[in-house]
Design a protein around this nucleic acid. Structure first.
Lengths: 168, 168
DNA sequence: ACCTGAACACCGTTCAAGT
DNA sequence: ACCTGAACACCGTTCAAGT
């Protein structure tokens, strides 16, 4: 006699992501996720292999959000860079999760549009690395020497674009 | 009647850091650390408040290693950047730990020498952000489109230095 | 003064038993 | 076919009792 499904995989992933943002990685317990979707922890294992897979799904979910933000820009490096920062500030924990090696696959979604804008693998890597590092440091509170971070971000982007245009 | 000390704080921190590099953050359990220093887990709490503090001490320890590598260079941006990368590749888990917000204080040791080399807060931030992002992506395996990463790193550094020299 | 076993609360995960 | 309670192994942490 079949039992009606009391939750869904998307609901589980959404709950996990909310918990990640609200309470950090340690707050994403199977029990907390289960409670949020109205089920007991063991039931989650019908939809995900284990907690690691759940976190990978959360990373994928975040990556697709970021892709959507990218798609809403004009495709220029400037707008892509600012969309990247807006995403990181709105979803700091998800951003950090994307940087973990386990979720490295999700990085492709980030790199692709920038590669299209710069039309050069080397150039795309410089821009992506700089923006990723800047946001990592900003979120970690590493920019404590003051100054306007909005301006610092724009300045960095200008610097790199200028450098990429240098004579070879 | 005093009992002889069976371990020391430096030994505990060193064991924790070895475990971090060998088995990742989840491998740094109080029990595993205790076993390595020849003591039972509860005894660790005589030297550290809790696991979080232990990880903070590990981050400090790694930061001072990095400072030593910086001090062994000629102080130029080029050598600093390569020392930074050598450290990250030799201590990938420690490097990642340094990027956590809880350890953000340790970042100062990294930023200071670069600030001295560039003599500009903005310039130091661009270089540090780019290098940090590059290494994060390299360690996460995000550079899967091939190419020589040594060359890519040198190219990125050239690009940024050139950009910093642009006319304002 | 440091070390320990025992205990507690809390994890992730498995599984037999329910519907 | 999905859900659950019970159980297991394993955490971090506390603490009274040992020396």
């Amino acid at each position: 006699m079949p039992t009606p499904e009391r939750t869904t995989l998307p609901a589980i992933v959404a709950s996990a992501r909310e918990l990640l943002e609200r309470r950090g990685p340690a707050g994403v317990t199977m029990q907390a996720v289960a409670e949020r979707v109205g089920v007991r922890a063991p039931s989650l294992y019908k939809r995900v292999r284990d907690r690691d897979e759940l976190l990978r799904l959360v990373a994928e979910n975040a990556a697709s959000d970021l892709s959507r933000r990218f798609a809403a820009t004009d495709g220029s490096v400037t707008e892509l860079a600012h969309a990247y920062r807006a995403f990181a500030r709105a979803n700091p924990m998800s951003f950090r999760l994307l940087l973990d090696s386990e979720s490295a696959g999700a990085f492709r979604d980030v790199a692709d549009p920038i590669l299209e804008a710069t039309r050069s693998l080397d150039a795309a890597r410089v821009v992506t690395a700089w923006a990723t590092g800047f946001l990592t440091m900003e979120l970690a509170g590493a920019f404590r020497l003051g100054g306007d971070l909005d301006e610092a971000y724009a300045y960095g982007l200008d610097t790199i674009v200028a450098g990429l245009r240098r004579p070879v």
